[in-house]
Simulated assay, not measured.
Amino acid sequence: MEYVTERVLFISLFIMIIHCIDTSAYATRLSGARVGYLASAFSLFNVMVIVSRMSNMIQQPLTGSLVDIAGDLSYIDALVWVEHQYRFIIAACTVGTVLGILFFPTFISLFSRALFHLSIERGSIVRLIRKCLTPSYILRACKHITVPRFSYLKGVKFKHISFSLLITNTLITAIYTVGVLSSLFAALLIPQHASTAIMASGLINGVATILIFVLVDPKVAILADEVSNRKGSYAQLKAVTLTMIVSRLLGTILAQIIFVPAAYYVAWFTKFLL
């Protein structure tokens, strides 16, 4: 069990970093509107989203290995043990999102400078990363670490908050957070159809990703364009961005609630397909 505990801690650390990156990605648009490199900001945002999605695919075999380890236990013991491990991993998603929120002002400052250097490097992400990893740039970046202050909320008004966007992104984040884990847990519930249940994770995360880019992303993109064209206010874009990161946090908390019901739904849906 000690070996398994170390494995869970490693997976949790990995997923925590993924969610921290996911949360920080929202800072790119604020940075783009702030320094006038909005198109470059969208490009950088897409790069971060792709890295996050790829990292999420890497976690599948890691979390799936816990199901294999539980195979030596009885049916009930395996369900209880895996549920506890997966809930710990979901909690790591929440911690990663909180870290992303705490460092959000820092990310805005760093991305503002990254966008400027990206224009110097003529859009080469590889050269930008190579430059940012040099000791001098790392030391310079450390000087821009900013502690969150209430003054950051200056200009943000209650009317700027979109509650429909808050609810939508909360639900999508919760589904995306448990997509892989619920499918793997469903494989334990119906071991005779385990392969079908596991493959359902790709469908769940795919639908969640499509919903993000159809229901959520265009609204933020249009507002960012309006700010860039001086037709909208930076404070309103800031309010919407805060709505997005808060909804991500709420989504990871909601994931704890829907984790097991989602697994039973996947199990039912798998039987329905067969």
Rank of each mutant, 00 (worst) to 15 (best):
I258P: 05
V82I: 01
D225W: 15
H117P: 02
L110Q: 02
F150R: 13
S112L: 01
L102T: 06
Y37C: 00
Y265M: 14
A78C: 13
S151A: 15
E83M: 09
A141Q: 08
M199N: 14
S119I: 00
M1Y: 14
S31L: 02
F10D: 03
I129P: 05
F213A: 03
H144P: 00
M16A: 05
T97R: 06
S12I: 04
C132Y: 01
Q60A: 05
T170H: 03
V95T: 09
V214S: 13
G36P: 00
I190H: 09
S164Q: 10
F163G: 13
A91M: 11
I129R: 11
A194R: 08
M54F: 08
S247D: 10
A114E: 02
Y26K: 04
F158V: 04
I258F: 13
N205C: 05
V240C: 06
V214C: 15
C132T: 08
D22R: 03
I15F: 13
I76V: 07
V178T: 05
V47N: 00
V156G: 07
F272G: 14
L242A: 13
Y26L: 06
N229D: 14
V35P: 02
W81Q: 10
I21V: 09
A208G: 00
L79N: 06
G100N: 11
L211H: 06
A25D: 07
G251F: 00
T243L: 11
M16E: 03
I145K: 06
F116E: 02
P148W: 12
K131P: 04
F272I: 14
I69F: 11
F158N: 11
L237A: 08
I15Q: 04
I50H: 09
S112R: 04
T173W: 10
G232M: 05
E83W: 02
L249A: 15
Y86K: 10
P191N: 05
S40V: 00
S112H: 01
G100W: 10
A235R: 11
G96S: 07
G155I: 07
P148I: 03
H19I: 15
V51H: 03
G32N: 01
K238G: 03
I108H: 02
P148K: 03
I58N: 12
L102G: 06
L118P: 02
V260G: 15
C20N: 09
V180M: 14
Q256N: 06
L99F: 07
T170I: 10
T209N: 08
D225A: 02
R230M: 10
A221M: 01
A239M: 12
F14A: 13
F213E: 01
